[in-house]
Design a protein around this nucleic acid. Sequence first.
DNA 1: TCGATTGGTTCCAACGTTGTAACCGCGAAA
DNA 2: TTTCGCGGTTACAACGTTGGAACCAATCGA
Lengths: 347, 347
Amino acid sequence: MTAVTLKDVAERAGVSIKTVSNVVRNAPRVSEATRKRVLKAVHELGYRPNPSARRLRTGHSGLIGLAVPDLATPYFAELAQHVRAEAAQLGLTVLIEETSGDATEELRLATGVGASLLDGVILSPLGVSPDELAAVASEFPLVLLGERSYERDQVGADHVLIDNVAAAREATAHLAGLGRTRIAAIGVDRQASATSRQRLEGFQLALHEAGVTYDPRLAPSIKEFDRRNGLLAMRALAALPVGVRPDAVFCFSDLLAVGAQRALFEAGSHIPDDVAVASIDGSDEALYSTPSLTSVVPDKAAIASLAVKCLAARIRSEVPLPFEVHTAPHWLRARESTNGGRQQLFR
Amino acid sequence: MTAVTLKDVAERAGVSIKTVSNVVRNAPRVSEATRKRVLKAVHELGYRPNPSARRLRTGHSGLIGLAVPDLATPYFAELAQHVRAEAAQLGLTVLIEETSGDATEELRLATGVGASLLDGVILSPLGVSPDELAAVASEFPLVLLGERSYERDQVGADHVLIDNVAAAREATAHLAGLGRTRIAAIGVDRQASATSRQRLEGFQLALHEAGVTYDPRLAPSIKEFDRRNGLLAMRALAALPVGVRPDAVFCFSDLLAVGAQRALFEAGSHIPDDVAVASIDGSDEALYSTPSLTSVVPDKAAIASLAVKCLAARIRSEVPLPFEVHTAPHWLRARESTNGGRQQLFR
DNA sequence: TCGATTGGTTCCAACGTTGTAACCGCGAAA
DNA sequence: TTTCGCGGTTACAACGTTGGAACCAATCGA
């Protein structure tokens, strides 16, 4: 309540307000003697700059936003941690927001809270169209994660992503490599998000390469990328007649896979003997699941690093920078849900 | 960048800046005609109030902070969602911060970012002492979740919590009710956090009531409430000689239990026949785990609701309010990890 | 008719900060 | 001696907003 201001510090140190401001901002042209005196007063009074005033005056607050659809999704929670760590290194504070995948909320964040409180936003869009976001990105620092549904020459914002097609292809190829021929896909979503379509593409590509024909019955539509949808989808797949029923399933996210594993457990099916399971996300939850889940692990640290650095550069820059697309690496981690057995996680 | 200000709207509507301000704030004493004209201009220009300026002038920003130790912990992620939902109903925006359980970071959040950017903070402390927080709470709206290590008459801040002793007691009693006599506890932490001590107390209480003597060898110390610590602790417990080895384990968090389940899976033990497992948190991860995990479910919606309402009241109030302690309900959900069997999660 | 009241609007100052320009010594160059 | 440059400091204005007081009709009661 009783906030300490520059004025209080100035009085105590016996200098002008502006000199104190110069000291706290590490501006040049301050004698060593005054600097010491001022810092002493700052410390004694416990002065902390007021971000609102600073932002109002300079247009910069040192705050960036991270907006993800759902924090309870391990992938996003883990990503958030990496983003925080990366931002801290650049002296930036991250404020995390949750959009629930709602288009209005996503736009509000970018234009509303974002534009006048935050210096920039890293957004993982789900509901909002690229066009709308491009309009925002042209006048506010915005880096998009993942979703990129348009062509390379039409980029309207910075992007950081993994090669979704390749990732899905590797996971599916791994399943096919086990000799499985009836491979299902869980994660085709109703709204046909970019991520979902790209992963389906990689899935189909791998099937084709393995000489397996794509059976639409084995690629049911889901509503959300959560455990429940994975469970229900797998339950439906397991109820298919023998001959159609899958012997492997590629899930478009770890949560879907966890749900699928649960459905198989309930049905008394053995993983991977009856059905092998693979997914994408590489979350800790997948690692500890029983059996541990084969998953494509995106380099979250790299994604976070690229996104934060890209955003910071755009914030710093006076002139409009060309939009960039960064691709982060990923690895397939084959575990018990495809290899079988029981491994000790640590040593 | 080209932010629309009150001035722009005023010019367009042909009124003074202050009148526009009155309209957007829903202040009285504005004729219906002007109000309409102004709102039209607001809409046409896409005006959005500048939170920094507003905060600077009024001291209120409509923003509250939620600071939790670790977002990748399902319990906190789910709690965050409830807090967001509750705050939205009161017209408040929630900014989520992660403290990593670091005392300095926790204090920084409450006094630093908090005091000059946010109207108030809901904090789930882990590393910082109640005394330090009480000092902050006396001059800045602060609601604490969970931790309350001092006596009822010494409360120095608002608190929202569940009855940890009772919750631990119920879970342990449930295990004892299965006829288990060698019941272990995983979650006694090195720093002896309040939560950990209260749950240990409830655990011992239930043992006593069941006529089982407490064996310190079955209550190993851990460093963090994560999956890895649960795995390592359970692995060590399972390696104890026959006769000492536990036939049940109560974990102080779902993540610990997930780790413990993994250890039992690796060791080839059957849950619950060989070892029954129960925990506290009631996260979705526990529900979907195989076998599904018996857990004490705190009413997260109630916790969030109480915390947000309490904080909002303190923010609104001009005069210092007496500190309150709210207790939210909890329920034991017995599932496969103690009851055995295979149940279908939905219908 | 006049003063008082009321509804509606405007003017002014201030929140805490920083950019710009101005100021003031002092030593060096002319 | 004067002038210039420069390190170090200060005064002032402004960012967008809102609280308070002032202002200006118009209506009302006496």
